[in-house]
Nucleic acid binder design. Sequence first.
DNA 1: AAGATTTACAACCGCAGATTG
DNA 2: CCAATCTGCGGTTGTAAATCT
Length: 352
Amino acid sequence: MGRSPCCDKVGLKKGPWTPEEDQKLLTYIQEHGHGSWRALPPKAGLQRCGKSCRLRWTNYLRPDIKRGKFSLQEEQTIIQLHALLGNRWSAIASHLPKRTDNEIKNYWNTHLKKRLMKMGIDPMTHKPKNHALGSGQPKDTANLSHMAQWESARLEAEARIVRENKLASSSIYSKLLKATTTARPPQPRPPCLDILKVWQGAWTKPRKDTTTKTVNGFFATKGNLESPTSILNFSENMVPTPNVGLIQENSLVRDISYLGNPIGKNNDDQVKGTMENSVQFHDIIDPTSFITYAADSLGVPSFLEGYTDFAPNTSSASAATGPADDVFEDNKISYWSNILNVVNSPIDSTVF
DNA sequence: AAGATTTACAACCGCAGATTG
DNA sequence: CCAATCTGCGGTTGTAAATCT
């Protein structure tokens, strides 16, 4: 395979693009389309290689790109999809239509990965690090272990269904499926502990007077983990969201019903049996089901019971924020109900 | 105030699959 | 079928801006 010399050619400019270059590229593509990227630069009057032009266009100049802060929902989507897909940024980006893979990759590396590590969660495996279970409470450890076990089993079943239905539909989901099943050798998929609950617990927990200043209009704290975006968006998303428009709602409720089996009892037969049931019940092909959990409309799904004490209190983040907040001791049920409402908010919303 | 350090992100590099002749 | 080229992708780097000391 011959490789093109690209930017090694003498006389081609590298480095940051100037506004003039941007304008030339933009104008040319608007008038002619990009066509062959290699042929484009001379036609557009640019001293750049085609590859550089393509990257500039796809990552910056394209009109359908959303820039700026990532919303909490976007963060959740990235985290869940990363747990599912690993570093397949283009596949993840396909689920965030107005974000580029480059932007998501950068955001992961500079924000999300570090935050997960601070929370004691391994960003590659999405499992809690043992030392970060922190409080040393055996109950917490057991809970996390069980949750990971269940989550892993659930995702395996979902992934199988996805594979079986990969020819179906021409929607964005089939596009995602294609991206995740072709092109590159399959990467070992890390089991997805449902860290979003921990995530939200860590970032949205009401704070006491640790706020010391504001940065860009957001609260910031000293000595605490910070998530200005999360703080802002949580308050917006705390409005209870009805489970409308979730075509997989019934399926997921059934899913949760199996998750609702007595996890803490660690009954292998129950695990096996309920998993089989869940696969039989499954009638969905939509991989977004990985990132939406339908809450029981009556309140808190039973599977969360018994876990309400682990989320906000066991991470290093909680260690940094001090003693458990009374709100979470007294209102665990409403807390989790709110969490699920947030998580369950439709992804394909106007936010994107 | 100034230098050092950290953070954030645009851009580049090179590999690999897809396409083309 | 093969080789050349194109394109997409993920990893990495360079550097401006922000923050710290």
